[in-house]
Each structure stands twice: as C-alpha cells, then as structure tokens.
Design a protein around this nucleic acid. Sequence first.
DNA 1: AAATTAGATGTAATCGCTTACATAAATTAA
DNA 2: TTAATTTATGTAAGCGATTACATCTAATTT
Lengths: 338, 338
Amino acid sequence: MFEGSKPKVDDVARLAGVSTATVSRFLNTPERVSEKTRKKVGAAVEELGYTPNFGGRYLASQTSRTMGAIIPTMENAIFAKGIQAFQEVLADAGITLLISTSSYDHEQEFENIRTLIGQGAEGLLLIGTARPQSTYDFLARRNIPYVIAWNHRWDGKHLYVGFDNHAAMRELTQTVLEMGHKDIAMIAGPTQFNDRIEDRIAGAKEAIEEVAGSQFILKSCVSNYSPALAGQAFAELMQLNHKPSVILCSNDVLAVGAIMQARKMNISVPEDISITGFDDIDIAEIVTPTLATVHVPHGRMGQAAAGLLLKMRAGDTNNKSIKLSTNTVLRESLRYYP
Amino acid sequence: MFEGSKPKVDDVARLAGVSTATVSRFLNTPERVSEKTRKKVGAAVEELGYTPNFGGRYLASQTSRTMGAIIPTMENAIFAKGIQAFQEVLADAGITLLISTSSYDHEQEFENIRTLIGQGAEGLLLIGTARPQSTYDFLARRNIPYVIAWNHRWDGKHLYVGFDNHAAMRELTQTVLEMGHKDIAMIAGPTQFNDRIEDRIAGAKEAIEEVAGSQFILKSCVSNYSPALAGQAFAELMQLNHKPSVILCSNDVLAVGAIMQARKMNISVPEDISITGFDDIDIAEIVTPTLATVHVPHGRMGQAAAGLLLKMRAGDTNNKSIKLSTNTVLRESLRYYP
DNA sequence: AAATTAGATGTAATCGCTTACATAAATTAA
DNA sequence: TTAATTTATGTAAGCGATTACATCTAATTT
C-alpha cells in the first residue's frame, strides 16, 4: 500500500468492479444493493481501509451528521458530565460531536459558532442565555437549530433544556432562612457573561427580602472556577464587623474554596459558619464537611438536549423547552442557626 | 434576508463586484488583495454574514485546519485540564479541535479515528499506547500524524508526549518503602485497555520486590473513575488477616473512594492506614486527609502535544518524543510506618 | 410467450470552494 | 515614450462524494 494514499470511491468501485453510485449506495442505503454486490463492495472497502471523505460527502449530500457544543471551559467539572451524556446520545444516533470552548467570552463564542456552522454543524448546544442579540440574529438568519442548556426561563424566546437557576437558589435560600439564619452572604462568580449566576443571585436575594430582619451581602468573585479566589472572598467576608452566619456560594467549586480557606483560618464549618454550594458535583461529597448544595441532573440534561436537537434535525418543529427539576441537598456544611 | 439562506462565495463576489477567486484570496491570503478591494469584500462578507463552507473548502484545498483528540471519557477530570490546554494552543493556531470519547473501548476508538480522519483531521491526539496493531497499521497506511499522550516509553515506536508512569509509580513506592511500610496493597483499575495503569502497577511491583521482606497485594477495581468501586475494593482489603499498612491507588479518584470508605468504616487515614493516589487533580488537596500523590503536569502535557502536532502538520519530520517529569507529592494521607 | 413491472446498476451533473494559469492594470526601467 | 516588470484580478478546472435519471435485467402477470 502506498503511504498516505487515501482511497476514494473510485478506487473502491474499481476494485469491486461496480460504479461509484453503487459504492455510495452500499455506504448509505445498503438495502438498495443486492446481497452479492454488497459482499463484493464490502470486501473492497475493507481491503482498502476506505473512509468516505467528509468534505465530499457533505458537499454532495448537504448533510454532515455533525453537531456542535460550545462550553465556557472544560476545566470546570460542571460541564463534563452533561456533555459526556450529550455526546453519548448523539454517538448512538451516528452523529459526531464537535466541542469548542469560549472561555466565557462572547466574541470567541461567536467565532466558535461560525466555525462550527462552517463545519456543517446541524445543531448547536449553547450554555446559558447570555450573549449578544447579534449572535442570536446570526443563528436565526442561518436557521440553525440550537438549544440553551444549563438554564431555563419562561420567556419563550429560546428552546431551553435546563433547570430554573432562580427558583433553585430561591428554594435553597428559603431552607437556609427557615433554619434561622438572618445574615446571609453570597460569594458569586462574575455575572457579566453568565445568566445562570445572575439568576442564582436574584433567587437568593428574592428569598431573603421576603423575610423581615434578614440581610444580604453580595461578594463577587473574579472567577467561576477558582477555589483560591473564592477563598480570598471568604477571608474578606470574615473581616466584617457584622459577620454572616452562612455563605451561599454560586457553585460547588467556589464553596469548596471557601471551606478550604475556613480551615486555613481555623474557622470551623458549620460550627462557626455554614456554607452552601450549587451543582452537586463529585467534590460536594468528598470535601469535609460534606457540602450542602443544589443537585442538578447533569446527565439527564445532556441526554434531553441531545434528544431535542435530534428531533429538530429530523424536521420536528413543534418542540418545547424542557425544564428539569433540581433539589436541595442538605449536608454537613449547613446547620441550624444556633 | 431569507431564512436559512446560506450565502456562498458567489453571493459575496457578486455583492462586492469581484470574482470568487478574489473573495477566496481575501479570506485566505488577504495580503494578495489590494486595500480597496479588501474593504469592498470585507463589507460584503460582513453584510451577508458569510461563513465559508467547510466541505467545499476542505475538498478544494485539501486542508481542514482540524485536529482530533480521542479520550476514554470526559467524566474523569484527569483529561479535562490537559485537553483544555491542548485545545487552547490549537485555537491560537487557528485549528479547530474535534473531541470524541471511546469509553475505553478499542473498537469504538477505531471508529472514532475513522470518523475524525474522514472529517479531515490533520493530526490525532491519542491517550496511551494500548490499542490493537491494526489501529496503528491504519494510521500508518493513511500517514496520519498522531501523538500518544499520558504515557511515555522508550521503545521508540511512537511519538510520546507524556510521563513515565512506570518510573513515577516506582519512585512513589520507593518513598513509601523508605517510610518503613512493608505490606503494601494496590487498588488499580482495569489494565485491559490501559497501558498507563499497567505501567503503574509494574512500577510499584518492581520497587517492592527490591526490598526484602516486603509484600505486594494487588486488588483490581472494575472501573477507573468510580470512587464507589474503589471503596468496595478497600473494604475487601480490610477483611484480610494480614492487612496492608498502605494502599497505593492507581489514580486520585480511586484513592478518594478508598478514603471515603475508610471514613465510613471508622478506619482513620493515615493513623490506621496510609493511602496514596496518582495524578494530583484538584480533589487531592480537597479531600481530608489531603492526598499524597504523583503530580502530573497536565497543562504542559496538553500544550506540548499540541505543539508537536502543529510542527508535524507544518511538515517537520524530525520530531522527538517529549518526556515530562512528575514528582511525588507528600501529603497527609501518607505517614511513616509506626 | 409477450407484456408489464420491480429491482439493480450505471451515467453524469452537482455541491462550494481553491488555485493554476491567463489576463489586465499599475509601476518601474530604459 | 515604450518596454519590462510587478501586482491585482478573473477564468475555469477540479477536489470526492451523492443522487436524479436512464438503462438494463429478472421476476411477475396475463
């Protein structure tokens, strides 16, 4: 075999003694090829190690069997489980997943979208709603199916496959309030490109404002996935004269950062202060004390998103957003106000 | 604008009043287009929201600006950091990364390789060396550049960008032995499709066999990333009459599983038994007690792999494997034998 | 046995882009 | 001013597949 020689349909056709059309049919609609020919062509494909060229195929058939997902970062475990499930469902349907990361940056996300569409993505998974209108316009103009995951809103503007960050955080906060806490702080990542954080903050605020005599302090953190920065935010909160009795964190990673910092400062959780997270990723059960948090069904979310996109790809236009439920998980890091 | 209408070079060319060749040059080699024309074409591209069709481009130019990575799973954080770094370097070079997961399965990995090559991948990142010869034959026949990451061997058979799992584990084990431990157990994931685990086990064994009076018990675990199963393995080890004084785990995830199980069983780490991990992912510092482990430079590994593939893509044939160094990190979970 | 039909295969146009080569315009040299 | 060179742009072939349509063969019906 010559090195680097990529066999083409013509090569396969010649070796099998049939036309290229037959080879193509063998590949795409084997039932339209007679048993005998199928054997011949199959053998030729095998012998040459033939793989259809995506470019040619896409160009001719206008179908790429490809979908794209753009996530802010891979470093935060939050997305790993969901995307894994997403890709598994797609793989079962014979669809290839292209993943790229935007680093929480709108322009880069837009660039990624363009690239993925150029690559023939027949559907897109996007995280959260926060992006410029121009991006949505582009998507609409190109008529690209997309779903918004990791959040859910009732505005009917998009197809969501996610959960209600606002309500979930509200519920957790209500639980905290019912446990007697009045002075509540929150460490949250940047909201600038992140509607989920925004919603979580709003949810907490709303719950707190409903209870007389309670107080809400918001401490923002520069990053969403840096435990160290959360630790710093925690330390600053501990400088206050009127210290909170509980700190809500906008996700588990930040919560763990806070817990680690507390340990360093010899402040014990939850005796001296309670801490909560959001997401319920693995570390929530690993850290000491175990972390009270909001459980999010990442796997089911990924599966549902894939299912929805597949339906849209099949031409189904009558699709609805899917709202998944979350639930508050009480663990050691949260206790009743003394 | 008509919905779904994808503008093509012809549309852009017409709007800008130039030929398609000029549009193409504007896109690919702007310096060959005059300032004036560049402005016209740029405006047309902007107005139409034009994105070149990947299929056409790939077909015509035979270059895809795409690379592929196949990882066993996204669920294990082990790969996230490395792949993130890998993709960042590629993105800087204007290369799109296609990621797929093989679920530790040879056939699926082979399928993924075929798909990625079909998609035009100009280089492949593979994890570890363990795969059928037929897969390597396919790669060689197609003359596809690839690098093997997460492991490094001296056999010269492939281009490696990784670390010496054998030596690293050997070093950790020697440290353990020097601390006076004699009865050493190891909880390791399946070696069937996993040369890294194989090497780690061999490294530990080798170190132990060099010390008279020491004993090695291997306990295999069904999964590489299930803390629960590691916990089960731990429990079984605790049934033994002659219990080990230290348990080496083949990665951090399993080690954490063992630690959690110990806590459940009221066995204290490291007082009653020491535990070590491998990889030094985030949880190693989060778990209580903090986990003694082998630090692996995941970020640098991903960067180096990308760099190497980019060089190969550029035609550089004189490339060498890159061996990154690891180091043993002593933390609370490991202490001197009483 | 002839007419009709269904099934299998082949021919050739087409998808959207790049690029070798040809041509035209602008610049410099003679 | 004209010739020689450089720079910018256009023309058209082709990349590797799919698929509508045409053709041929075999099976079924009458």
